[in-house]
Design a protein around this nucleic acid. Structure first.
Lengths: 144, 144
DNA sequence: CACGTATTGATACTTACTATCAATTAGATA
DNA sequence: TATCTAATTGATAGTAAGTATCAATACGTG
């Protein structure tokens, strides 16, 4: 039972660093988010926190996305899914069968961006990349 | 005034090849889509075709996405945007200021996927990549 | 502890669709 | 080219994922 810095604490610090107030509601959303392991929706969190207004959940999730505490990604059909962000500068693989989300780092993507910088006249301000997979366990369990 | 095969014709053929019926409404949606140069929303098309039901516009756009006639991509906040697909196997750059969409090919992305194949146990079934930029003309016009 | 501004929650609204289902129609077949 | 049937349509209503509004509340600086 040590008092080592927790991910939760980091998330709160990130919000503080952004000049935001730390309210009970924001603590609750952060706690609910940090408890999650895979992807989750805003409604998941909202349903889990009946004491926190729906609008506040959405607002807080957006703050957490901006603070790089969580990522907002999209399923193939565009449905948004949030996922805790553990690794810096990563991308996601999403299993289209079970919804499992993994983070992976690949510097090759950064190489794509650098080469694009040379080709276009504009300035790159961001990017998004998702790889859709059928994960190992899904392949094994229902071998089609 | 020759009768060279048009993009429109190709789109219709793609629908036929998928075993779908070619209706007047589908022709209208295809024509409206092919007339577009940049990104557009489903509402854009629907507003342009008052004679075609809204639901039919959405349904047809989905068919055209499946047939690779158009792409559905997302702005940084997740807002969906459709864009005509001219080049095979490409990705998109989206100007976050003016909304201009360009296609680019980069085989490096495929390299990312191949290396990922080695790292994970699953099977890759798709991917999405968007690069957000401030395009040349936006940078010039309002130099911040 | 007081005070001012950020934040909240209830409500209503918006956007981007999807489900339903009776009416219509494309296009295969006779 | 008439028939027939399954695919398609459109009107309507519903869903999912948020955003706008604004009066009431509470964080945290001083």
């Amino acid at each position: 039972m040590t008092t080592a810095p927790t991910a939760q604490h980091d998330a709160i610090t990130a919000l503080e660093d952004a000049g935001l107030r730390i309210t009970g509601q924001r603590r609750q959303v952060v706690a609910a988010v940090e408890r999650r392991d895979g992807g989750f929706t805003a409604e998941d969190i909202s349903g889990q926190l009946p004491g926190v207004g729906r609008a506040t959940v959405f607002r807080t999730l957006k703050l957490l996305v901006n603070a790089d505490v969580i990522c907002k990604l999209a399923l193939p059909d565009g449905t948004p899914i949030y996922s805790p962000s553990r690794v810096e500068h990563h991308h996601h693989s999403v299993c289209t069968t079970c919804g499992a989300i993994e983070e992976f780092r690949d510097t090759t993507v950064e190489r794509v961006l650098r080469s694009l910088t040379r080709e276009i006249e504009g300035e790159i301000v961001g990017h998004r990349m998702e790889v859709f997979i059928r994960c190992g366990s899904c392949l094994n369990s229902q071998a089609v």
